[in-house]
Design a binder for these strands. Structure first.
Lengths: 153, 153
DNA sequence: TCTGAAATTAATACCGC
DNA sequence: GCGGTATTAATTTCAGA
């Protein structure tokens, strides 16, 4: 169940290069291919590795504007919450949605093309969801750091 | 330079499964292996695909608490900005850091174990950076949605 | 659990279309 | 550009320490 230092090193390496060949990974952690593969498969089966993803350049595919949108609902009925979360779940521009403690209810990370795209997202999508009371947008002028790699220690 | 519909489909599929074999990818987009591989290599070379990553379960590796920290600097000197960004860049708990428009200067997405871990992050790391004036933390009670897949259209 | 070799499967370069 | 084939390299299984 627990991870030893080799498992942790595997997770660190695969977070940086998810397509590293098993042979190279094995060499990097000081194992031969067979046991390395078993460890990776175990990490996948037990859910430590939930998947693999190609990372796509947002600017190049025309989604270069990242915006953090905070949402407050008018009422916290079960129906309003479920409706909002369902809408957000199927909107591909919403990369993340977190139910947060504090003044606002949700924090969304949204990928749009530009300011007109943000306008359309807010007007055509968010404000049309019943129960959405207020919306505030924090525009990312520059992304200083962006990684998918969680520290494993 | 531009992407046709098959390129876009490749990006969509590889964002969902970055380790799909080239043969299966080729079948999924209706090509044979050779031209499919050529397209993937082109997407990598031209930067549309910036990399591949294993996605690691945060709860299982003891980083289950996601916190959004907003930071205000005391003064916007070149030195203070560079110092802050350098510190944040090398802190593995900081998954994202965005320079934002609006009231606060930076929005950080941080992965910690629990509330004591957040406390340590704020006290031992953030408040020790010269020039950091105020910190506010928005704790993610529940993550409704979380994807690395950018819409490609 | 590891190693090392064998069998299977995939990646990739080449050529004809 | 694509597709098919040949070659090369990788993954994966299995016997044995």
């Amino acid at each position: 169940m627990a991870l030893d230092s080799i498992d942790k090193e595997i997770l660190r390496i695969l977070q940086r290069d998810g397509r590293l060949s098993n042979r190279d990974l094995a060499a990097a952690v000081g194992l031969s291919a067979a046991p390395c593969l078993r460890r990776v498969q175990r990490l996948e089966e037990q859910g430590y590795i939930s998947g693999y993803a190609a990372l796509v350049d947002r600017d190049l595919v025309g989604r270069g504007l990242t915006v953090f949108v905070t949402v407050r609902l008018a009422q916290h009925t079960k129906h309003a919450i479920e409706r909002f979360e369902a809408e957000v779940g199927k909107d591909p521009a919403v990369l993340e949605c977190h139910w947060t403690a504090g003044e606002t209810d949700y924090l969304l990370k949204v990928a749009v093309a530009d300011l007109p795209g943000l306008d359309r997202f807010l007007l055509d999508r968010m404000t049309r969801i019943p129960g959405v009371a207020t919306l505030q947008s924090g525009i990312a002028i520059r992304t200083v750091k962006h990684t998918t790699a969680v520290p494993v220690d």
